[in-house]
């Protein structure tokens, strides 16, 4: 589902590469943690997958797309098959919960009747069925992140990218979000989650890919956050 072949990324403003010759493979339906300290290249990797940037060297594959060489006009097609969730939720403050989720479908031109049936389903799935008409400012952090996940998932993406989705949440709420991501993973969606959250990584016992200074430092199936770090 995701394949990186000798991928490097050098930014013009930096002498050290943000990613340095990274090769990795993620199968369809896998759940992978991407860990490493700040500046280790996690965000760069996610940006390359979303084609917010192109690799300096190497090839990035998502599904059957050669992401780095995708024509600009085809980028939306790629992103329509990927969902993303961020630490800061990125909800639209002037739209309700339901409208925020519907937004993702409206901008890709889904018909209104589809939107009307799909949005409540997805909100139920993230346990926010009763809060469809709330504004984002009325939600707790955990609820806001659930809305963001609903928005990322509503179009049934092949891949869900999560960039520190629990970074702003207390441990208990974070566990809830993790449960939700695992539930999404069980529907067949590949999940790639960048995180600093040791407790979540350790308790999930999923595949762990660790980056260090842009290089692939570790790739453990059923791994933990770190060994005596």
């Amino acid at each position: 589902m995701i394949r990186l072949e000798n991928v490097s990324k050098v930014y013009a403003t930096s002498t050290r590469p943000a990613l340095d010759d990274v090769t990795m493979d993620v199968e369809r339906g896998e759940f992978v943690f991407l860990i490493g300290p700040s500046g280790s290249g996690k965000s760069t990797l996610l940006r390359l997958l979303l084609r917010e940037d192109v690799p300096s060297r190497g090839t990035v594959w998502v599904a059957n797309w050669n992401v780095g060489r995708l024509a600009r006009r085809r980028v939306p097609r790629l992103r329509q098959r990927m969902g993303c969730v961020f630490q800061d939720f990125r909800l639209l403050p002037n739209k309700t919960v339901a409208e925020n989720v519907a937004f993702a479908l409206e901008v890709i031109g889904k018909p209104r009747h589809t939107i009307r049936t799909v949005v409540p389903e997805v909100l139920d799935m993230v346990d926010l069925g009763g809060k469809a008409d709330r504004m984002p400012s009325e939600l707790s952090g955990g609820e806001a992140q659930r809305v963001a996940i609903a928005r990322a998932f509503v179009n049934r993406p092949l891949v869900l990218l999560a960039d520190e989705p629990t970074g702003n949440l207390d441990p208990e709420t974070a566990t809830g979000i993790m449960t939700l991501l695992e539930r999404i993973n069980r529907t067949g969606t590949t999940v790639l989650m960048a995180t600093h959250d040791r407790q979540i990584v350790d308790s999930a016992r999923r595949r762990v890919v660790e980056l260090s200074s842009g290089r692939l430092a570790r790739d453990d199936h059923h791994g933990v956050y770190g060994v005596a770090r």
Binding site: L50, L78, R79, R90, L92, F103, V107, I108, N155
Partner: peptide, 17 residues
Amino acid sequence: RTEVGIMRLVGATRWYT
């Protein structure tokens, strides 16, 4: 810009943005 950023992330085409 926030809206447009989100639109681009969820795969909106140039038409929509």
